[in-house]
């Protein structure tokens, strides 16, 4: 197993290297010169040339890439143009709100989605099934920011049940932390919830038609253990796969959700970098988020052994 994990980790290296190449080329081949961006609008051509030289932009492309990737491997993601600080340091500082939001969203979306998916499959064809599937289509169609503002308007402005926006570190107490994450998690989790509910329903429908489920029912296993122990456990592999793929949805959503709810996380760091054209930040966050996506999906692959003893590595 450990040998397998190491082998799989090594197998992610080419993908990550290609990600790095794409991220690097994107910045260096895009029309628009980073040096003139840094120099500002009123710079003379001499100033721009000086900046080019200090950044190493006058060297051949492959040499720039080699220097850059060597630094990245040492954890140096470059310097932010606006903050004049290391990008890695800035990302670490903003990590807590983003990780908190990701965890609460995962818990909210996955538990509700699996519950709804199991229910819809069990009552297939009924009104419950149709409303769950209707909810799923709506979940795909409602934009994160529209849901976000709708929730803020209803629950924070009209009903005054929850705070409008912002973030409190968990160190300042559990409830103040959680109450500011409830609305963002719902807004962010809706599309994710729809995705997981749909795959749960489909997989459960297939499993509930299997012979051993009929056997379980015939020998008198109660409905709940039948659904959750006998059926759901066997449906786990496709569901977990989609949970992993859906992380891409979460990452994109985080950027928008943090803007709607004014959460000072990594997503906001990127959004603030857009108008400042702070490309090292955008580059660094792209690399970090891509690595997270690749690692999450690796973890998903490895988790198959937990759910299905037939899978052996």
């Amino acid at each position: 197993m450990i040998a397998y994990i190491i082998r799989r980790l090594i197998a992610t290296i080419p993908v990550m290297l290609l990600v790095a190449v794409i991220v690097f080329l994107l910045v260096h081949l895009a029309p628009g010169d980073p040096a003139s961006v840094i120099a500002g609008d009123n710079a003379t051509s001499d100033q721009i040339a000086a900046i080019r030289a200090t950044l190493g932009l006058d060297r051949p492309l492959w040499e720039q890439f080699a220097i850059w990737i060597w630094r990245v491997l040492q954890g140096d993601l470059g310097q932010s143009l606006f903050w004049n600080r290391g990008v890695a340091e800035l990302i670490l500082q903003r990590a807590e709100p983003t990780i908190s939001l990701a965890i609460t969203t995962l818990i909210f979306a996955v538990t509700i989605a699996i519950g709804l998916g199991v229910l819809a499959a069990w009552k297939a064809g009924s009104g419950i099934d149709r409303s769950v599937m209707g909810l799923a289509v709506a979940g795909f169609s409602l934009p994160v920011f529209v849901v976000g503002y709708l929730l803020v308007y209803l629950f924070a402005i009209e009903l005054r049940w929850l705070p409008v926006q912002g973030y409190r570190p968990i160190a300042e107490g559990f409830w103040p932390w959680l109450e500011r994450l409830i609305l963002p998690s719902i807004a962010l989790g809706l599309a994710y919830l729809a995705l997981i509910a749909r795959i749960t329903r489909t997989t459960m429908l297939e499993i509930l038609a299997e012979d051993y489920i009929r056997t379980a029912q015939a020998k008198g296993v109660a409905t709940r253990p039948m659904l959750f122990k006998h059926a759901l456990k066997n449906a786990a592999v496709p569901i977990v796969t989609v949970v992993g793929i859906g992380v891409a949805l979460l990452i994109s959503g985080v950027v928008i959700t943090e803007t709607v709810f004014n959460i000072p996380g990594v997503g906001r760091l990127v959004v603030d970098a857009i108008t400042r054209r702070d490309y090292p930040i955008i580059q660094g966050v792209m690399l970090v988020f891509s690595a997270i996506y690749v690692l999450v999906n690796l973890a998903v692959d490895l988790s198959y052994t937990l759910f299905d003893p037939r899978v052996r590595y």
Binding site: M16, S252, V270, M286, S290
Partner: peptide
Amino acid sequence: ALMAIPSILLAIA
């Protein structure tokens, strides 16, 4: 590799 890069970040960049 392209699929691993979050699409919204690619677009933002």
